[in-house]
Computed example of a mutant assay.
Amino acid sequence: MSLISAIIMASGFSRRMGENKLLMKYNNKFLIEYTLDVISKCNFKDKLIVTQYEKIKEIGENLDFKVVKNKYPNRGISESIKLGIKNCEESEGYMFFVGDQPLLDKKDIEKLINVFNEDTSFIVIPKYKNRFGNPVIYPKKYKEDILNLEGDKGGKSIIKSSDKIKYVDVCENTLFDIDNIDDFNNLLKRETVYEK
């Protein structure tokens, strides 16, 4: 049985994109579907998606994710993080995903989980060369700190104050995310998303 709950944050406004990037189509699928598909193939104690969007709620429910409606997305990313923690089962660790990483690699997710399971007191962060990104696993001992986050602050403040962090090498694709239209166009130039 997995010790970890997966929390997917999908409440953002995509202001830099000008439209909801998670519902942009790539190879006839919504971007969010790639993220959810690969997570659904991994073994988690709980799989939960936090969103303000009806369409994403529908997609999540079709893939058997627990869906939590974010009624206050204007409060920033901290609201999604807190809703995720409050609504999932008590777990040894909480793995936070963003919805705009369509090239996430299942093997990398499993590698991060395995490293966490070796010692569940460490925060586990993926890296490629000098870049760090999501998904990050937080041990349950940080639960209260997470619930005290405010505004548009994510978990970086928790990471900065922790002395128990493990960085895990992942492939470049896993950290690829869509922040703007250039990133999306870069994605479209690729032939296809490889099978996980």
Rank of each mutant, 00 (worst) to 15 (best):
N117V: 01
I4Y: 01
D105C: 13
G155E: 06
K45A: 10
D37W: 00
G133D: 00
D100W: 00
D119N: 15
D179H: 15
S91D: 02
M1H: 09
M24V: 08
N148L: 13
Y26Q: 07
K189P: 01
L147H: 01
K196E: 12
I7E: 03
K45S: 11
G12K: 03
P135M: 07
S40A: 13
I59C: 07
I113T: 05
I39E: 08
E92L: 07
V170P: 03
S11R: 05
I59H: 05
L175Y: 04
G60S: 12
T51N: 06
I39C: 10
D105K: 15
I165V: 15
R16P: 00
N114T: 07
K143T: 04
K111V: 04
K196R: 11
N28T: 09
S78M: 04
Y138K: 04
G99Q: 08
I59W: 00
Y167H: 12
P135T: 07
V168Y: 05
I113W: 02
F13I: 08
E195H: 09
S80N: 04
G76R: 09
N148H: 05
G93R: 08
Y26M: 06
V168N: 10
E92Q: 06
K153C: 11
I4P: 01
N20V: 05
M24P: 00
R131P: 00
L3C: 03
V115D: 01
S5T: 08
E110P: 04
G155Y: 00
T35L: 02
E19C: 11
Q101I: 01
P102K: 12
N27H: 15
V38K: 15
I85M: 03
C42Y: 04
L112N: 06
I59S: 03
Y194A: 15
L187I: 09
V68K: 08
T35W: 03
K129A: 10
P139W: 03
D108A: 13
G93I: 10
Y72D: 07
V193N: 10
Q52C: 09
N114P: 00
S40Y: 07
N87V: 03
N28R: 13
I8K: 02
